[in-house]
Design a binder for these strands. Structure first.
Lengths: 233, 233
DNA sequence: CAAGTCAAAAAGTCAGACTTATATGTCACA
DNA sequence: TGTGACATATAAGTCTGACTTTTTGACTTG
């Protein structure tokens, strides 16, 4: 989706990362650099670079005389986009999807409120355009086109919030939305009510109505939570 | 605070990372691995490992025939604890502190609401203990002790939410709270109203009152925003 | 049985030679 | 004058083998 395995060490990561994320090597497992280098048919230098990257993600810890041990899940850098992708590709995809959707429900309403204050004219225009695109693809099994505009819509909101931390979650939201369309039940056309909410949200941001923007986004995210049977009554 | 520079490549990172985060090498700057290796007096292998880590944080991009170029700030993995620490140590510390406080204001209320539902008895006890500790250190310039319990309090809330993404923000909140006490204006004793809010929040969680927990946390974070003159009227 | 000692194991480090991709400049040709 | 193909220099990428350092677990010793 973003960057494929650049260089040999990248290929190794593309194989090892998902395996660790999926629990193939449970926490506490010990790997040896030399053995891994042999297994992947690369030199030790390349293998060491790969291990360094995994270490920077807190997926593993490398210690002398011991080897490379897999860390407990609770210590992983779960905000690293690559770790997120690896986990979404594995077994605990549903669990990860839930965590991320709850995260969305916390972030996006606040981001929308800020966007209503800070959005530029260009951003407002783009937002309206995305909303129109969603409407245009909301009927007749045009899920791909709908998804494209949906992702773009939320990305603009997060960016327009003016907060760098929010902006960086654009990729995460994209993964969640894409995942929902691809893997989960999404055979039918999208809920018309959701589409309307997006159109109204674009209006609210354009008019600078922070409170309404926040409330509308909260409705959208509640819908996303309900889809996954996460009730917050 | 967490992990000091382990190994030679760690020392290099401890020097290079903060420099890049501080803008010493502005985005677009080109570095050469060989030159860096000479400058830090390490072998190329070690330097390459350091560059790989910086690359995994999206701080730099390494391309053949070009060198190691610094990426634009907007692409950095700003959720990486190490990146956060590096940025907090540098010039845009105030800006970073604001971003993170806004993030807190979005996350913590939701986390508190979830904590009220999911917290175990042990977590409730720990929460009450922390709140009592805050009260005990709230007068007479015992800022260090107060901070300690404040950090622990918020960490328990985030963990008790049961959401791994929230839980991992414990370190971030710790940095923000510590930074506020250390660098910002924090000469006087903490606001008594804030202390009371924490005590009440512990109560609300213990009683499983999600709505009240959320509302109280919102008040707490609004206070944090006001301290930094971030008004959200 | 405690404390000190030793040897093996694995990561860490280094130096050097070689490979590969690619940005850029050069030159012929239209 | 512009445009294409081609050559070249450059810096990252890779591999290898030897060496160093830390740490652990076993073994010895008082």
């Amino acid at each position: 989706m973003t960057t494929p395995g650049r260089g040999l060490h990248g290929h190794v990561l593309e194989a090892l990362g998902p395996a660790i994320a999926a629990g193939t090597y449970p926490p506490g497992s010990v790997l040896r650099t030399d053995e891994l280098a042999q297994r992947f048919d690369v030199s030790r230098s390349v293998m060491r670079e790969a291990v360094r990257v995994l270490e920077s993600m807190h997926l593993v810890e490398s210690r002398r005389r011991v080897g490379v041990t897999v860390r407990p899940k609770a210590e992983w850098n779960v905000y690293d986009p690559q770790v997120i992708r690896w986990r979404l590709a594995g077994a605990d995809r549903p669990h990860q999807l839930r965590s991320l959707t709850v995260l969305r429900s916390a972030i996006e309403p606040v981001a929308a409120g800020l966007a209503a204050r800070h959005a530029t004219a260009a951003q407002c225009a783009e937002l309206t355009e995305c909303a129109l695109g969603m409407v245009a693809h909301s009927r007749g099994h045009q899920l791909e086109g709908y998804l494209l505009h949906d992702v773009a819509f939320h990305r603009v909101i997060l960016t327009a919030s003016g907060n760098e931390m929010f902006a960086r979650l654009g990729d995460v939201v994209a993964e969640v939305l894409t995942g929902r369309t691809e893997h989960e039940v999404m055979f039918e056309d999208p809920d018309p009510a959701a589409v309307t909410l997006h159109v109204h949200l674009a209006e609210a941001v354009r008019e600078g109505d922070a409170a309404r923007a926040q409330a509308l986004t909260r409705e959208i995210t509640v819908g996303a939570l309900q889809e996954l049977d996460i009730l917050a009554p």
